[in-house]
Design a binder for these strands. Structure first.
Length: 425
RNA sequence: GGAGAGGUGGCUGAGCGGUCGAAAGCACCCGACUUGAAAUCGGGUGAGGGCAUGCGCCCUCCGGGGGUUCGAAUCCCUCCCUCUCCGCCA
């Protein structure tokens, strides 16, 4: 949520910033609603004050044993007027909140212009693109050769966009999770957390998935509604919802492995082959809650932490800065890490690292007590995948494949696979 | 799922129709005493919002929502959560 004070003071400038995303914010209409709210609120509060004062007088009169009936009738009349005013005010206020909840975050000035994925500038690159003296297979072929990657079985028990892994591949998958958690907890000072995989609507509203993106989520039949977590960002970031953190508690660094569930509605034709885009996948997520002054530095740090995983695994990647047209709803600035997939001969997203500034914090009412002002103020929140496990498995298979279809094990994972250096199938 | 108890400020906890944003204690901050500290004493200390922006005035918030009433932390309905016992169960 954008600071309502900013929204009131300078709606034109906000409209200009959001326009870079292609978002149209009707500043005039907002200003009009805000004007009405303001005068109606003043009037409502006057009436409330009137009612309070007179009701107290009735109490006092009653104690003196006076006749209070005429007084009651009078206040009753005020009450009618008041509830009418309250009803209208309520409507206007929820209208304003509705607008506020659908406004995306303000962009950092350095977010590049652009309309889509193709316009994201590359910031840096790591690792050489592997040269094969044979035509590299894609991960589906490799999985078939090795055995242990079964899309048909998954389709029978669930449907499309699921996979069943078994044997060495299941173990490699688990090893990746373990490896990532170990690095982040022991080298990057993150605390591991375990959280619910079903979350409520309030949590999703806090991080920004709701109310706008309900169609991307799986809703569980339950009253009140539960949703399957689309990312650990939701439960983990919401750990600080409605809290006032003390200065000394910050920064918070948390790492969390969860499954993620996405409906992929609207992506019907996209990445239908293989494990790239699934309804269910595993992710190790990094979340930070920091002092506002430190969040930009924290974004660089967090991105670096995710990069370490790719480097240790020896996977070539590049870092791109998401452009104004491609960046997420809640984010002020996002770096994507893209790993090289030889079979596709292109880089594919494997991590997305964002600074949400105070946007999620306002929605969640997550604050800290700023020692300089003594007041509770919104914290800044960040997160990034560290990394997407399924895509990481895909990248390892494709980058470490041999002509015979066998796959070498990245050095860093060897201890996690019982000393095994080669996946044999 | 059944029976019961409860959800109040950073924490503990009183209040059960009027003067209650709410006693008391703890914690925290300021001051006094002290060479300094501790102890003691005095004072202060919730969040959000509106008007004014000069000290200020006012509104809302006692788990969420709805209702009764001139007036609700207090009464009623409903939902959520916590605890105890029983049942079932990974």
């Amino acid at each position: 949520m954008i600071d309502p004070k900013l929204l009131r003071q300078d709606p034109q400038q906000i409209a200009a910033n959001l326009a870079r995303r292609g978002f149209v914010f009707d500043a005039e209409r907002y200003r009009g609603l805000e004007e009405r709210r303001r005068s109606l609120q003043a009037r409502t509060q006057d009436l409330q004050n009137e009612r309070n004062v007179r009701s107290k007088a009735i109490g006092a009169a009653k104690q003196r044993g006076e006749d209070i009936e005429p007084l009651k009738r009078e206040v009753s009349r005020i009450g009618e007027e008041l509830s009418e005013a309250e009803a209208i005010l309520d409507k206007i206020q929820s209208g304003l909140v509705g607008i506020q909840l659908e406004l995306p975050n303000l962009l950092h000035p350095e977010v590049p212009d652009g309309e889509g994925e193709a316009d994201n500038p590359e910031l840096r690159r790591w690792g050489g693109i592997p040269a094969f003296d044979f035509t590299p297979r894609d991960h589906v072929e490799l999985g078939t050769l090795l055995g242990g990657m079964d899309f048909e079985a998954a389709a029978r028990i669930a449907g499309s966009r699921f996979v069943v892994l078994s044997g060495e591949l299941a173990r490699l998958h688990r090893a990746l999770i373990q490896f990532m958690l170990d690095i982040h907890t022991s080298e990057h000072d993150y605390t591991e957390v375990y959280v619910p995989y079903l979350v409520n609507a309030a949590a999703l509203t806090g991080t920004g998935q709701l109310p706008k993106f309900e169609e991307d989520l799986f809703r569980v039949e339950h009253e009140p509604a539960f949703y399957l977590t689309p990312t650990a960002e939701v439960p983990v970031t919401n750990l600080v919802r409605e809290r006032i953190l003390e200065e000394g508690e910050l920064p918070l660094r948390m790492v969390c492995h969860t499954p993620c569930f996405r409906s992929e509605a609207g992506n019907y034709g996209k990445d239908t082959r293989g494990m790239i885009r699934q309804h269910q996948f595993e992710k190790v997520e990094l979340v930070q809650v920091v002092r506002p002054a430190e969040s930009w530095e924290a974004l660089e740090g967090l991105t670096g932490h995710a990069e370490v995983i790719l480097r240790r695994l020896g996977l070539p990647y590049r870092v791109v800065s998401l452009c104004a047209g491609d960046i997420g709803f809640s984010s002020a600035r996002t770096y994507d890490l893209e790993v090289w997939l030889p079979a596709q001969e292109r880089f594919r997203e494997i991590s997305s690292c964002s600074n949400f500034t105070d946007f999620q914090a306002r929605r969640m009412k997550a604050r800290w007590r700023n020692p300089e002002t003594g007041k509770p103020e919104p914290v800044h929140t960040l997160n990034g995948s560290g990394l997407a496990v399924g895509r990481c498995l895909v990248a390892i298979l494709e980058n470490y494949q041999q002509a015979d279809g066998r796959v070498a094990v990245p050095e860093a994972l060897v201890p996690y696979l019982g000393g095994r250096r080669l996946l044999l199938g």
